[in-house]
Design a protein around this nucleic acid. Structure first.
Length: 281
DNA sequence: CCCGGAACCTGAAGGC
DNA sequence: TGCCTTCAGGTTCCGG
């Protein structure tokens, strides 16, 4: 499940192979992965274009082209970009002018490819980058403001903050000792400070470990990341909390699994006693 | 504007 | 053994 550290790793690995190259051949094997324009316009429009740069924004991978167009990839859950290796069942295939081959694979076909005249059409609505200098602890405090949504729902909202996904959100909340259902506006400033540091440190650790290879995540050379080996709560239901030994619990939040330690991350008051709300009293 | 839930997609895993 | 349900979750859309 590529989140910020996984996409950052892929970007860094691909960078030396693609910058300055141009697309010599474009094959779309699964038309449904091309989101814009039409698959045929995409194929014709991308062919011949030269790559000026490659960057990451949130979980999007952006190939900036000399024409000003942008070729954008989102891997969603099961997508991968492989270099010089094209497995059966690939969704799209790209050959660059010096012979480098790129294959886009995506078992579940949730991922997407775009060719747009301006990258901002796709990434313009994303929130701030958590690892950039402009994202300060005061900025986070201001963003949380009077929001009543559960803190974890906000952390997963890409227009709120770009790049965190389910795994790293759970890890950051554990590191900051915050229950995932805590209303954002109920966080004390001390908690916001801890959360800010936790978000940045779990993402930086994830990048250093080349991402987390749960499910089908692969680096462009087909290798795996090691970040999941350091996870403390994500996907650890029933396993002992590394801090206190209490079994990790899972609750459903917005259709996602939220993993947390019930002792280290005590629930907010309203969640503790839902049955106290009795109309007949 | 804000919030929550469903849908999309496919394969693995668990329960009975 | 086999069938059924649940889980996995990034994003978008819809309804209150």
């Amino acid at each position: 499940m590529p989140e910020l550290p996984e996409v950052e790793t892929i970007k860094n690995d691909l960078l030396p192979h693609v910058v300055g190259r141009s697309f010599a051949e474009v094959v779309v094997a699964s038309p449904e992965v091309v989101k814009a324009p039409s698959p045929e316009e995409f194929r014709r429009g991308l062919r011949g274009q030269r790559i000026r740069g490659l960057r990451r924004r949130g979980k999007y991978l952006i190939f900036d082209l000399h024409s000003g167009d942008a070729f954008i990839v989102h891997l969603k859950m099961t997508g991968a970009l492989l270099i010089n290796f094209c497995p059966d069942g690939y969704r799209a295939y790209f050959r660059l002018d010096h012979g480098t081959e790129l294959a886009f694979t995506d078992r579940r076909k949730l991922g997407g490819l775009w060719l747009v005249p301006d990258a901002e059409i796709i990434v313009g609505k994303l929130g701030p980058e958590p690892l950039e200098a402009g994202f300060t602890v005061q900025a986070l405090a201001d963003m949380l403001g009077q929001r009543s949504a559960p803190i974890k729902a906000l952390l997963l909202d890409q227009s709120f903050l770009a790049g965190l996904g389910n795994m790293y959100a759970d890890e950051a909340l554990f590191a900051a000792r915050i229950h995932p259902l805590t209303p954002a506006r109920d966080l004390t400033r001390a908690r916001v400070d801890k959360l800010y540091g936790a978000i940045r440190s779990v993402l930086q650790a994830g990048i250093r470990s080349r991402g987390a290879s749960v499910d089908t995540y692969r680096t462009p050379d087909g290798g795996q990341g090691m970040a999941h080996l350091a996870f403390k709560v994500a996907h650890m239901k029933g396993k002992p909390c590394p801090a206190c030994g209490t079994p990790i619990e899972r609750l459903a939040l917005r259709g996602r699994g939220a993993y947390f330690c019930p002792k280290c991350q005590p629930p907010p008051a309203e969640v503790t006693k839902p049955q106290a709300r009795n109309p007949k009293s």
